[in-house]
Amino acid sequence: MRIGAVIRTKGIGKVYGEGTAAFRALSDVDLEISSGELTLLMGPSGSGKTTLLSILGCILRASGGSLEILGERADQLAEGELPRIRRETIGFVFQGFNLFPALTALENVALALDVRGLRRADAEKRAAELIREVGLADKSDSYPEDLSGGQKQRVAIARALAGDPPIVLADEPTAALDSTSGKNVIELLRRLAHEHGRAVVMVTHDPRVLSYGDRIIHLEDGRIVREENGAEQMESAFAVAG
């Protein structure tokens, strides 16, 4: 269900350091990410996946090229404007969950709404709904240390959805999970794309999730070297197996 491009990059590049110590992490990345799609970013370590995700998430500035988010030129915005873009348009899911250990599951989700300026009571009400949506209603008062990996990641997804963002960026969200938990999480992310019309971009190494991706973008040495859809990927995987 491809609805429309919410992220557009043209000629995006990123160079770390200067002079002889300069290191080019990304080169000429042209990309369109659409609503209603689960896009997988794949590639070996050091291929620039996380750098690209950081740039798409307006956490890191590109060294060159343009970045458009929902029609707004994010690369031209002042530094102080970027948190607004992140708050209003992007939800993040991290490999290490990045939950706040001092807060309960409910409070972790409510915090994302506090950042957006919601009153505490409203934030907790909305957080309870989100926790219920990810199937953890009975764990809302649990602290992260009392949750399994899969449960933590579902709390993290609920948190990412707190601001109702059109874009969800996930960095290897299944890497630290067993196969069942991983499957639950990827299915949840796919549902967010397909049923809620969100653009979900996910960095992954995990071959188990390939079949869930609508698009798979391969990066090597900071460049996009190949793009295929989920069906093509599955076919090539079966061809190799056969």
Partner: peptide, 16 residues
């Protein structure tokens, strides 16, 4: 520090 990084990623302003 990691939690503050997460807050930043979530869109928290420096003043927050």
């Amino acid at each position: 520090i990691r939690e503050y990084g997460t807050l930043k990623a979530m869109g928290a302003t420096n003043s927050y």
